[in-house]
Design a protein around this nucleic acid. Sequence first.
DNA 1: ATTATTTGTTACACTTACCGTAACAAATAA
DNA 2: TTATTTGTTACGGTAAGTGTAACAAATAAT
Lengths: 136, 136
Amino acid sequence: MSASTKLSNAVKALCFLASVHPEPKTSTEISGFIGVNASKTRKILSMLVKNNIVESTYGPAGGFVIKKKPDEIHLQEIYCAIEDRKAFHMDVTKNRGEQSNYLNIFFIDLFAEIQIEIEDKMRQISIQSILNKINS
Amino acid sequence: MSASTKLSNAVKALCFLASVHPEPKTSTEISGFIGVNASKTRKILSMLVKNNIVESTYGPAGGFVIKKKPDEIHLQEIYCAIEDRKAFHMDVTKNRGEQSNYLNIFFIDLFAEIQIEIEDKMRQISIQSILNKINS
DNA sequence: ATTATTTGTTACACTTACCGTAACAAATAA
DNA sequence: TTATTTGTTACGGTAAGTGTAACAAATAAT
């Protein structure tokens, strides 16, 4: 799954969990909402659990509950939780034996700048702000 | 080749051609500089030719010559020439049968905004400015 | 304790995309 | 006519992504 797809799926799950809080929802229920299968949904949510954004309980009547307040969860935080590598990864240095390495450095710097801008933008968007936008 | 790799390779080729202007360089020579094989180099350059950024001549003593002035070539223009789809593509709507399509719209809008920011940034960078930065 | 249920993780087949390279027609200068 | 170069297509090999299944670990209910 691409980073952006993973991010949008995580946000969908969180919006869903926020709307039913504090009722626990199983991966099967959530997967029906966001449109990916339960196994992959668990994979995404398990990462949100590790980052204390969601709580999970095993066994019957178990499932996932959103842990933080919707206005305290930002996209950048979600993206960091689900993605180890850069979200919108940009490759430069794949070429071998080239004579233009100084240009690689230029692009690495440029793409890093873009990356920072994207993260700044994501930091400004909370789950609550998304819910507000949807309900307006 | 990823969009960002293609872009950086195109820029490398243009920097090389700018530095030897008006001498024509073959795809073999350029490929040695940017570090990809001649066939792929021709593929990239042929798109720059179609967009009037580079001129090509067939036959012996032929090759590629940069056509526009380095300070009149911007990254955004190059990226448009070599890439049909969005450069830093972000996927949202791959899921089937979901109940959260209104959230897809949110992400499409968000990613479009990011895309515009990236393009604005690229519009501010010319081949000449890259050459200046490298030579300083 | 036993059972049923749910999470968390691994595995796997299938498909898709990517990469490097080769090959060849079209064009053109010598 | 020949040699050279571009522009384009094709192809095998490799890597990545997708969807699904399977199962151990955990836990509530009985």
